[in-house]
Design a protein around this nucleic acid. Structure first.
Length: 161
DNA sequence: GCCAACGTTGGC
DNA sequence: GCCAACGTTGGC
């Protein structure tokens, strides 16, 4: 029996392509970017408590003309404080975050490959994906868990070609 | 730009 | 602890 803490998880992580697209991530040193700007406790807790280095990530483009899954990535580091919370010039500045007890965390994410754009309308039209957390009514979380079945269906049946 | 849905804040 | 007001997200 596999211990739960060692079970591999999968995630969908939203990024605005105007800020960091899958192409930007692939061109970064080591194809790795710091996932800055998470300012929601539930999303932070996913990163802190459930993510593990090596977990698979669906790299999702949001707030753009064609929202959808744009690539595959992996969790590449443990959590560390998100430096943008202490930067007054950053849009992610949080004046209430204590310097000695940072409120917001990030992980490094390594882009592995760009896929064809699996658009949100296509995702919604795919019966196998109707239970995905990101597709539920009112879902706004920038980081959501992805089941093994959804991960396999997307990466094996949809991302190719 | 609109607005539904959800999260956070702060007075009480 | 309640909850109204306000802010944010993100698709459209």
């Amino acid at each position: 029996m596999t211990h739960p803490s060692t079970a591999r998880h999968h995630w969908l992580m939203k990024s605005e392509p105007g800020e960091c697209s899958i192409d930007d991530a692939l061109q970064a040193p080591g194809a790795t970017v710091a996932w800055t700007g998470v300012r929601n406790y539930q999303a932070r807790n996913f990163m802190r408590d459930a993510m593990q280095v090596g977990d698979g990530v669906l790299f999702y483009h949001s707030s753009c003309p064609e929202p959808g899954i744009a690539g595959i990535a992996r969790v590449a580091s443990d959590t560390r404080p998100d430096p943008t919370q202490f930067d007054p010039s950053s849009p992610y500045f949080d004046p209430k975050s204590p310097a000695d007890k940072p409120r917001w965390l990030l992980r490094d994410v390594q882009a592995l490959k760009k896929t064809r754009l699996i658009g949100l309308p296509e995702m919604r039209a795919t019966p196998e994906l109707t239970d995905m957390v990101v597709l539920q009514r009112g879902s706004r979380l920038s980081i959501t868990p992805v089941s093994e079945a959804h991960w396999r269906f997307i990466t094996e049946k949809m991302a190719g070609r």
